[in-house]
Amino acid sequence: MIPELGHFAFILAITVALSQLHPALSRQGAVISLFLFALSLLALLWSFITLDFTVVAVAEHMHTLQTVMGRMIGMLSSPALLALLAVTMLSAARLKFTRVRLAGLVCAIAAGLVLFALSPFERLDPPPFDGIGYSPFAEEKA
């Protein structure tokens, strides 16, 4: 359920970020889109922490046999998570540069690219049992 909410929040954040082009909506738009981007980032982080292998980004970079350090490296090596983090930071930076009206548009375009190119909340059915990320036993087997 959490990844679905994150996916919807991310899409909603893109449309809200686009609304910042109107001067009357600039400030509220920036705050609300930041909130929604942060919500979707938290949803993806939650999926990584709980090892939700129905999410492609999690299944590709995590494995149940990884140590805590391995899991952290797996999280940091996920382009989807990093891109979502970058978009959230861009959205936060937008609050600082309130005079630059196009910053909202830049943020929306960046988020759109992330959505279409990386699909951070793409799901897998059926999910892999242990994840297909790096397994500490892979080297031993090799």
Binding site: M1, H7, I11, I14, L115, S119, F121, R123
Partner: peptide
């Protein structure tokens, strides 16, 4: 946008 990306649940 949501429907074009599929219903992920």
């Amino acid at each position: 946008l949501y429907l074009s990306r599929g219903a992920p649940y």
